[in-house]
Design a protein around this nucleic acid. Structure first.
Lengths: 226, 226
DNA sequence: CTTTTATGTGACCGCTCGGTCACATTGTAC
DNA sequence: GTACAATGTGACCGAGCGGTCACATAAAAG
C-alpha cells in the first residue's frame, strides 16, 4: 500500500506517477524495471518517490490493483448480464471485452503477461491470487452451464477452467500479432471462430452437427495457404 | 556462436558451463541473469568465460540451440511416425512427449516460457524463429488432416495452428501445477481429456456424437466441486 | 633450455541499481 | 514576522552488473 503522502498528492500527479510506472513495468521484467527511469519519466525526484511508496514492490502491487480495477470496469457490463447469457455468449463477450481492454491499454496487457510467466519472490503471491480468481470465476460459470445442460457433463472442469482462463490471453495475443489490433469486424470474426472451436471442436463430423455450430462469421477470410 | 576455444574444451567442462547457464537463465529473466553467478556455479573464472563466448547473448543463443536439439531428440520417434498417425493421435503423442520433456528438464521449460513472454532486444529474433517454426509445423499437419477429411474444412487454420502451438505449453503448465509432475496415468488422462476437448468441443450434444469422441480415459477422476 | 601460442585468472572499469539522508522549500498557524 | 510540520530534492551509499585487460600458467615447437 502506498504511503498516505501519495494520496495527498493532486490526482493529476498521482496519475503521472502511475502512468510512468506502468510504462516501465510493461517494458522491463520486474527485476530490471528501474525506479530511476520511473522518477525521470514522472518528473519527480527519487527522494520524493520514496515518500510515496515504501519500495518497488509497493509500487508494483499498487499498479496491479489499479489495473484490476480498470479491467473490472470494462467487464462490469458483461458480468451484470452473466446470468442472462448462455455460456458461450458470455464467453464471447468476455473475450471481446478482453481484447478491447488490451487494445486500449497495451501496457496493461504486457504487465499481465509478465505476471503470469515471471518468477520473482515479490510477485508470487499476487500471481497466485490473480490466476486463482480467474479460474474460480470460470469454474463457477462452467458448473452452472453444466447444470443447465449447455455443456457436456463428462469434461474435466478443473482443466477446462484453467484453459479458458489462459485462452483469453492467447486470443488477445493472436489478434494483436496478426490483425495489428483494431477493434473491428475482423476481431469479432476471430473471436467467433475461437468460440466455435471451443463449442464444437475441430474434428470433421457428419453435416447435421455442423450447422448447429455456426456463430457470427463462419468464414473470417483469413489468408489461404499456398 | 561460441568461440572456437569453447569447443576445444573437454566435453565434461562444456557441459558444466552449459548446465550452469541453463540453471541461471531458468531462474532469472534474461536481463537479470548474471554471468557472475554462472561462472561461479560452473567453477571457472570470469575471464575464461569471455574466452568461450562473445557475450551474454551468445551464451543464451547457444543454450537455446542445445535445448532445441534435445527437444527434437525427444520428438523424433513421434515425428517419424507422423504420416502414419491420425492427426489427433499425433497431437496426443506430441503433447505427451512435450510434458515428458519438461518433466525431465524443468529448467528448459522455464527458459522456453521466458522466451515467449519476455521482451528483450537480444531475444526477439530467436523468439520469432522458434514460434514460427512451431506454427508452420502445425499448419502443415492441419492442412494434410483437412485434406484427409479428419478435420472440418471450415476452420481458420492460421488461428488453429497458433492455438495448438501455444496449447502444448499450457497443458504442460497445467499438469505441473496440479499433478506435481510425474509421468504417469494421471498425465495420460489429462492429455486425453485435452485432446478430446479439441476434437469434439465442450458443448453438450445428442448422445450419438458423444461416444465417437471417447479417448484413453473418459473420466480422469479429478476432484469434484462442492 | 627458450620461444611461441593457447588458455586461465581475478582485479578492475564504468555504469546502474534500490534505497537513504541531510537539507531546502513550501504552506499554514500564530 | 517566527515556528513548525509536511513535502521536495539530488548527492550519495554499497552492491552488483557486463565486460576488459595485464598478467600467470602450461603445453608444444625449436
Amino acid at each position: 500500500m502506498p504511503k498516505p503522502t501519495f494520496f495527498n498528492l493532486p490526482a493529476e500527479k498521482q496519475e503521472q506517477i502511475f502512468r510512468a510506472a506502468v510504462a516501465e513495468f510493461a517494458a522491463h521484467p520486474y527485476a530490471a524495471a528501474a525506479i530511476n527511469r520511473i522518477v525521470a519519466r514522472a518528473g519527480i525526484a527519487k527522494g520524493s518517490f520514496y515518500q510515496y511508496f515504501h519500495d518497488k514492490k509497493d509500487l508494483f502491487l499498487y499498479c496491479l490493483q489499479r489495473i484490476g480495477e480498470e479491467k473490472m470496469a470494462y467487464l462490469a457490463p458483461v458480468l451484470q448480464r452473466a446470468q442472462a447469457l448462455s455460456f458461450f455468449d458470455l464467453l464471447q463477450e468476455l473475450f471481446v471485452q478482453g481484447v478491447r481492454f488490451v487494445q486500449d491499454h497495451p501496457a496493461y496487457g504486457a504487465i499481465g503477461r509478465r505476471l503470469v510467466v515471471e518468477r520473482h519472490p515479490d510477485l508470487d503471491a499476487a500471481l497466485r491470487e490473480v490466476s486463482a480468481q480467474g479460474e474460480v470465476f470460470y469454474r463457477d460459470r462452467l458448473e452452472q452451464a453444466v447444470a443447465r445442460g449447455e455443456i457436456r457433463d463428462d469434461v474435466d472442469l478443473a482443466l477446462l477452467a484453467f484453459l479458458l482462463n489462459r485462452l483469453s490471453g492467447l486470443l488477445v495475443e493472436y489478434h494483436l500479432e496478426r490483425a495489428g489490433g483494431a477493434y473491428d469486424e475482423q476481431m469479432l470474426a476471430t473471436a467467433g471462430q475461437f468460440i466455435r472451436l471451443l463449442r464444437t471442436g475441430m474434428e470433421a463430423r457428419p453435416d447435421a452437427e455442423r450447422r448447429a455450430a455456426s456463430y457470427p462469421s463462419p468464414h473470417p477470410s483469413q489468408g489461404e495457404a499456398p
